[in-house]
Simulated assay, not measured.
Amino acid sequence: MAVADSNHTSSGRASARERFLAGAEAAGIAPEILRFPEGTRTAVQAATAVGCELGQIVKSLVFLCDGEAVLALTSGSNRVDTARLGTVLGGKITRADADGVREATGYAIGGTPPFGHDRPLRAVVDRALLAYDTVWAAAGTPDTVFELTPGELVRASGAEVNDFAVG
């Protein structure tokens, strides 16, 4: 069952949707947000919901590189090789927990968009995502996604393209 989105939370802070839209506007992107009440928290759920290949889903994964939050934008059909990611970023990689993800990005796991975070994060994009005409990413909540081109993804996230994932 669909639930109306609120523009503000009870704390007075803009909702995740509103913060995402502000970040998209700042990046020059006008996304059409699709909402799936059954959820798009995982790459498989998102691909099934939108009817695309698993590889077209952008997983926005937060890691710590020597304690500093970084963003790995990974194809839904791949997983991050933390040793490779550490080589690319020049440090020791550990996975951020749910609180760390929210603290670094302002968003919950499963809804973290590739840009528009509370603070800028160093980001890398899985080269495999460049093979597609369009890709799908979370739009701030675990039940919303939007479509964009790989070029828009790289530009809006400020990410460098690299090989740090394995299929």
Rank of each mutant, 00 (worst) to 15 (best):
A2E: 14
A4E: 15
A4N: 12
D5S: 14
N7T: 12
H8P: 00
R13W: 03
S15T: 13
A16R: 13
F20Q: 12
A22Q: 14
G28K: 04
I29N: 06
P31G: 10
R35W: 05
P37K: 07
T40S: 11
T42Q: 04
V44M: 07
A46P: 00
A46C: 10
A47C: 06
A49S: 11
G51A: 05
C52I: 11
G55H: 07
G55Y: 08
Q56G: 05
V58E: 03
K59R: 13
L61I: 15
L61E: 08
F63A: 07
L64W: 03
C65S: 13
C65E: 11
A69R: 06
V70M: 09
L71N: 05
L73M: 12
T74V: 15
T74W: 02
G76C: 08
S77D: 14
N78G: 06
N78I: 04
N78K: 04
R79T: 13
V80S: 08
T82N: 11
V88G: 07
L89Y: 10
L89I: 11
G91Y: 09
T94I: 03
T94P: 01
T94W: 00
D97F: 00
D97T: 03
D99R: 14
R102K: 15
R102H: 13
R102G: 00
E103I: 03
A104E: 10
G106I: 01
G106W: 01
G106A: 12
Y107L: 06
G110N: 05
T112V: 15
P113E: 04
P114G: 03
F115W: 13
G116T: 02
R119F: 00
R119A: 15
V125E: 07
D126E: 09
R127N: 10
R127Q: 15
A131P: 09
D133L: 01
V135H: 04
W136K: 00
D143C: 06
T144W: 02
E147V: 01
L148M: 15
L148H: 04
L148S: 08
L148R: 02
T149E: 10
P150S: 04
L153I: 08
L153C: 09
V154M: 10
V154G: 10
A156K: 05
A156I: 09
A156Y: 04
S157D: 09
D163M: 01
D163V: 13
F164A: 05
V166L: 14
